[in-house]
Design a protein around this nucleic acid. Structure first.
Lengths: 342, 342
DNA sequence: GATAATCATGCACACGTGTGCAAAGGAGCA
DNA sequence: TGCTCCTTTGCACACGTGTGCATGATTATC
């Protein structure tokens, strides 16, 4: 049987409301009673009941975090950032993975509403606007990370993927490449769109055309997909000399596929990734990629939502609705000038 | 203002206890009132308050999951398994990372006790026995995964690392290697011990000696450590021809280190990993490793703890306290017979 | 010295749900 | 008709915490 404030009250010879106030460091209670109560609380090993507190105050000291897939090094690094900030602010984390399944998404929403989370961070690109409205409708603030429709949300954080994609493309162009293709992912919402848009934009502004068959997109991000798609690009009569990949996972797979076909990277073929997941530095050759501040993004998302929680009581509205974070180009060894004959 | 059972009661013209019972499908309530109540509950969009329910029943429908580090592909795959099972049983997940910091561990324990989790899964090797007793002391069942002292716990799950390490070592011996070294991790508790033990055991049972400088252990598992340690092994006068690495992360780093020194793997040097994380198949050459059923381990851990929760009411004691799961040897391209001159 | 002002504390109730017990209503039976 | 038994429902209270309000004690003011 756990210790309650009533137990403390009995032991200290006061009433339980006095204990409640004392532990909140209320100015109504005299310093000496506070001290007495704190000591007996410590002695008895008191721990407040989150359930009772949450029932009364409508605050749970818990945040919900929704991912499409936890088992993804990109997301787990974001999660790490979130967790750090949450823990240092004494917030607990409810975590769930939607697996892009609408059924599960609904289940998750219900679970989080039932558990009365104070706020929600959505890191799932597939989460629709109307789904997330189920939170805001009940006064639960949400922050979305890299969502497909960041602008539709009141608060969101995303990485400037257009910029990243442009920088990668520009790097290849500067190396002398002219026939550059794009290997994309089709189901990551805004990320899908922005990375392709950045590629196209940079190509066009350099006067380079992109034939339709230079764009290849498919759902999912297993490296295995990369291997499968190798054939497509290598089979083209106007074979590209360089490839911009949607992310590191796909690039890693593509790299393996190219090497299985006997191509030397980067001498015969250049390839870029995106995200700078830890393994992109351990491929052979190491991947040229775009470093996205993943942990920082997680931290910012957590800080933003915690500010919102305080704001709702203090009626302070944060000045900024949308935060755009910038990354940096990371030139490693998977890119080089195209072969001489081109 | 969320809908409560009282709102339903008012709308349906009954008392709130009747609603409570009806929604629990109690046999005390007539079928037609049940139907009426269910319909109005649906119409009003009722969602039970976990706080109130938990306060009354002392069950929260939530599990705690403690990791040392979330940003680790090995653990996140286990987490995925846990999440799947939990979600399908309508349990939510409280998640926290200890970062091997005793202070944070204590904070996590408090947070989880406050939130009244029904059970805890500990995937952190650094979690001490006495720490976890804080849970069992208050009747919260715990399941530990791959813990250093699995036998001390009432319920635990672990992978047979001794067996895995033996099989890897045996594979190298069968290829003809005699000078085999071990590159380990020093802060993963039982895993640390078992993998080294398996290596030693197999070497000895084949009559091969292991000089002290053939064993190198350090804390942490960043691939970067692998690079740093390359010098140690390559600098030895009796240089080994093969290396058994604690896990894939370190092996991936070591592989890069070897290649930076101009060594060809596997022609001049063989190397093995452990765990079969997804990237071990995408190094060049792909890593020979030991496939551990990570997701399955997570699923089993979640199932075990859910059984314990039911058992505590039904007074059924599970027959098995400790589950040992087996993996399988995965021979890829990072291992080959030693060079001819040896 | 009487009154007002200030401080510290306790009483009572609320949050939303679940459950023991009593009670009301109907059916069955002698 | 009177009794018992069963079904269905409501009443009252509990879970642990927080807060408005009243109360009692102490000090300040004229």
């Amino acid at each position: 049987m756990p210790v309650t404030i009533k137990d403390i009250a009995r032991k200290a010879g006061v009433s339980h409301p006095t204990v409640s106030r004392a532990l909140q460091d209320s100015s109504l209670i005299s310093e000496e009673t506070k001290k007495l109560i704190r000591e007996t609380a410590l002695k008895l090993g008191y721990l407040p009941s989150a359930a009772a507190r949450s029932l009364r105050t409508h605050r749970s000291q818990a945040l919900g975090v929704i991912f499409s897939n936890i088992n993804d090094p990109y997301f787990s690094e974001i999660l790490q950032g979130i967790e750090e900030v949450a823990q240092s602010h004494h917030y607990s984390l409810f975590m769930a993975a939607s697996q892009r399944d609408p059924q599960r998404e609904q289940t998750i929403i219900h679970a989080m509403r039932q558990h009365h989370v104070d706020g929600v961070i959505i890191c799932s690109t597939s989460f629709s606007d109307e789904k997330s409205q189920q939170f805001s409708q009940y006064g639960i603030p949400i922050v979305v990370v890299n969502n497909q429709a960041a602008e539709d949300y009141r608060y969101s954080i995303y990485h400037d993927d257009v910029d990243g994609s442009r920088q990668l493309t520009k790097h290849l162009i500067e190396l002398g490449h002219r026939r550059i293709a794009y290997f994309g992912n089709s189901d990551s919402g805004r990320t899908t769109q922005d990375r392709l848009a950045g590629f196209r934009f940079e190509m066009e502004s350099c006067g380079l055309t992109v034939p339709d068959h230079y764009i290849y997109e498919l759902p999912g991000s297993d490296p295995e997909k990369g291997i499968l798609v190798t054939n497509h690009f290598l089979g083209l009569s106007d074979r590209p000399t360089a490839l911009v990949c949607f992310n590191d996972m796909l690039a890693i797979g593509m790299l393996k596929g190219l090497q299985q076909h006997g191509l030397r990277v980067p001498e015969e073929f250049s390839i870029t990734g995106f995200d700078n997941i830890i393994f992109s530095d351990y491929t052979n050759p190491p991947l040229t990629t775009f470093d996205q501040p993943k942990r920082f993004i997680g931290q910012k998302a957590a800080e933003l939502i915690l500010n919102l929680l305080n704001a709702s009581t203090k009626i302070t509205v944060p000045e900024q609705k949308i935060q755009v974070l910038k990354g940096r180009l990371l030139i490693r060894k998977s890119t080089a000038p195209p072969p001489a004959e081109f």
